[in-house]
Amino acid sequence: MRALVQFYNSSVGKKLIVGLTGILLIGYLIIHLFGNLLIFRNDCGKAFDTYAEILPQVVIIRTIEIGLFLIFIFHIVTAAYTWLLNKQTRDQNYKVRKPGQTSPLTSRTMFFSGSIVFIFLVVHMRQFWYNSRYEAGEHYSMYEVVKTTFSEPVYGIFYLIAMFLLGFHLRHGFQSAFQTFGLRDKTYAPIIEWCGIIFWLLIPLGFASMPLFFLLNF
C-alpha cells in the first residue's frame, strides 16, 4: 500500500494514472459508439430503443458503470491536481512566449479541452442517462429523446463543439498515454500515431454524425 501511495505521489505515477484511466475511457467510448450507431438503422429507432431499454437491466453493465464512474473521477481529479501543481512551478512567467513554435496546441490545452468535455459530460448525463434512468415513464423512447434534443440547433451545435474538443483532447491524449506507459519508442511511435487516428478522428466523428444527422433533418 505504501508503495502505491508513493507511486501515486510521484510525478510520473500521477501521469500514469491519468494515462491509464484515459485509455480505459477511450475503450468505453468505442462500446458506447457502437451501441449508439444502432440509431442509424432504418427502423424508426426500434433497435436503438430496445438497446437502451435492455442495457440498464444487465447486472454486469451496472457494475461496469460504477467502475467507469470511478475511473472518470480518478482521471479528472488526478489531472486537475497535476494541473494545479504545475501552475505552481513558475512564479513569474516569461514576457514573451512562443509556445506555438515548439509544441502543438492540443498538448498545451488538455486542461481546457478536458474541462469543456467535462461540462459536456454533465449536460449529456443529465439529458440522457439521468432522465432515462430515473424519470422515464412507461413509454419512454430514447430514440425520440435523442431526435428532439439533436434537432434543436443550440443543443446540436453544443454537441458538435464538444465532440470537436473531444477529438482535440484525444489527439494529444492517446499518444501521450503511451508515452507515459513507456511504449512510445522508435518502433511503436508510428503505429501509435496511426492508431490514434481511429480514436481522435473517427470516434468523435462517429458521435458527431448523430447530431449532424438530426440537425440536417435526414
Binding site: S11, V12, K14, K15, T82, L85, N86, T89, P99, Q101, T102, S103, P104, S107, R108, M110, H172, Q175, S176, Q179, T180
Partner: peptide, 12 residues
C-alpha cells in the same frame, strides 16, 4: 519541477 505533459517542447 513540474509534471511532464508530453508537449515535447523540450525536444524542440
Amino acid at each position: 519541477f513540474g509534471h511532464c505533459s508530453n508537449t515535447y517542447a523540450c525536444e524542440q
